[in-house]
Write a protein that binds this DNA or RNA. Sequence first.
DNA 1: CAATTTCGATACGCATTCGTTTCGGAACGA
DNA 2: TCGTTCCGAAACGAATGCGTATCGAAATTG
Lengths: 188, 188
Amino acid sequence: MARPRSEDARNRVIEVAVDALLALGVEGVTIENLALRSGVAKSTIYRHFGNLDCIVTEAFRSRIVEYPTPDTGSLETDVEELFIRYNLDDHRQLNELMPLLLEAARRDPALCEVRDRILAERQRPLRTVVKLAQARGEIDPDLDLDIAMAMLTGPLTYRKMVQDLEVDDEFLRVVLRGAVAALRSTVD
Amino acid sequence: MARPRSEDARNRVIEVAVDALLALGVEGVTIENLALRSGVAKSTIYRHFGNLDCIVTEAFRSRIVEYPTPDTGSLETDVEELFIRYNLDDHRQLNELMPLLLEAARRDPALCEVRDRILAERQRPLRTVVKLAQARGEIDPDLDLDIAMAMLTGPLTYRKMVQDLEVDDEFLRVVLRGAVAALRSTVD
DNA sequence: CAATTTCGATACGCATTCGTTTCGGAACGA
DNA sequence: TCGTTCCGAAACGAATGCGTATCGAAATTG
């Protein structure tokens, strides 16, 4: 029997928060700025979210996505499909947001949780694909999955986060072949 | 005919700044805090450094290190030596500092410069080692060096920055073998 | 249509930090 | 030893942002 809390105002704040995160970094986000840019009044923001940390957490959390798992019957083509999906369709600015989140999570347990959830969701199909390849006997069945993740995703991440270079077709092709070769090399 | 500016005070400020960076992040560093923890007065700090940005830049710059280049005659053992040097002897907290710097450099051109210099200094011996292997015919001589860097260093970086896991002996062994296999796979 | 709750605008007190300035005393060079 | 310069402590105004409170207007439920 009351007016419902505006979902639209909430979403507007979160979208503006994501933009602000990308533009200014975690510490650059202020409530007054969010109110100004979103057109939502400070008082309203405090009604929806308890405090600033809560907004930042929700902004990151709003970017959690589920990815489908390919199953082409071959590790190389499975991984290729995932690489393209991860890195070329940058779904909802996630690739831009990740380094921010990784750094912020070092000093904020609440963000650690969000980071781990986003990461788990991102890695899930890749883990599955590797396990399928292990079951088929394509690669060492005893290979630790975390290590496999690092070998597969590491070069991609390094290219973007550290080198700050473009992930072009040649890079993708060479690294994909290399990563699969790396996984096959662990015969122990 | 004057008293020289105290080099000791300057160094103390920079050391405290590095500690503060690690503990609080780039935005957590304040001049008052530095003055308090270093025992150097604010006025003195302003005489040595123009402003806060300058201190942060100098703190990062103070961590630029030169690494020796191994030459064992084999790519695998060369790379192994560098991996150990990079990641097990964390010389002057550089591994802890890098993610901070990478993130901060996204929004600060001055820090971009520092980042690139540190990165170049870190990669130099690894690049040399790869070029030696190319000259020996161990790997494809046309392989782009930036791609090679990503394939070699990527998994290490991913392990620490993204997964936040320990780089133990098994990881190092598997990834080393995998990375070399990856480089050899690019026969095109 | 009416009651209730939210919305947006504005203002307030409080805390933090910056960058500057002033001052007495200590340290160094000539 | 003497004069110059730096050092450290303290205080200052200005700016910023948080969190809270207030108020009329708008909107939605029953």
